[in-house]
Computed example of a mutant assay.
Amino acid sequence: MTTTVVIPLYPGVTQLDFTGPHQFLARMPDAKVLVASRGGADIEADGLCFSRLADLEAIERCDVLCVPGGWGCVEAIEDERFLESVRRLAASARYPASVCTGSLILGAAGVLRGRRAACDWAWRPLLELFGAIPDAGRIVRDGDVFTGGGVTAGIDLSLAIVAALRGEEVAQAIQLGLEYAPAPPFDAGRPELAPPPVRAAVDAAMTGRLSAQHDRIARIAAALSPVAQAPS
């Protein structure tokens, strides 16, 4: 039987959060990958425009729901119709999943309460606001829910999902076909590995913007759940 994968897009999504997983999941045998937005509207992501999208609200169910992240994740959570579509599709999915700050969207949809979950390192503590247990893993599976860390973790996440659905050999064949053998020129891809001056520069560049977004998410979480607690 065909496995239906839905990737819901929204304004401000990070393109690699979904184009990476799409590349791998689309090569899974007997898979149908639907990239969708509310009303099928065009979505611009990092200067690229994605059109001819499926209407998210018209999709009845899916086997895999892969929610990407991005700076627009807060607005996506505030969009009641978008969030309801995520909640509805996650309930039907065999494997709800997310990449980067997409886990905050899953959390707001009520999918992650009591579960371990990954997220982008700078946003990870906010998972507690939605009753999730923040996990620093690159790929975290808790029951049938898969979550990935920041951006590039989406490729590893997709391989893990393929392995769960079709077996490790199929996942490895897709990995080989795409020659996915990461060997970055620098070992600075995690905050604990980056040289202190690099970490400081990134922190300084993100602080103002992150602070405002964090405050908004805290207000949203409090409205969604009166017992929500601020992260420690």
Rank of each mutant, 00 (worst) to 15 (best):
D144T: 15
G149A: 15
I139E: 08
A136R: 14
G148Y: 11
I133S: 07
P125D: 02
I133A: 11
A153T: 13
G131K: 06
D135A: 13
G150A: 11
F130Y: 09
G131T: 01
L127I: 04
D142N: 01
P134L: 02
G148H: 11
L126N: 12
R138S: 14
L129H: 11
G143N: 00
G148T: 12
T147I: 05
P134Q: 04
D144M: 12
G148I: 10
R141L: 13
I133L: 13
L127W: 04
G131W: 00
L126V: 08
L127Q: 05
F130D: 00
G150V: 07
E128Y: 09
P134I: 04
V140L: 06
G150R: 04
I139V: 15
V151Y: 02
G131R: 04
R124C: 08
D144R: 14
R141W: 09
P125Y: 00
E128C: 13
P134S: 06
E128A: 13
G131L: 03
A153S: 13
L126T: 00
R138D: 12
G143T: 06
G143R: 01
A136M: 14
A132V: 02
L126R: 05
D135K: 10
P134N: 09
I139Y: 09
I139S: 10
R141A: 10
D142E: 04
R138N: 12
P125E: 03
P125K: 03
I139N: 09
V140P: 10
R138E: 14
F130T: 10
V151Q: 06
V140M: 04
V145K: 06
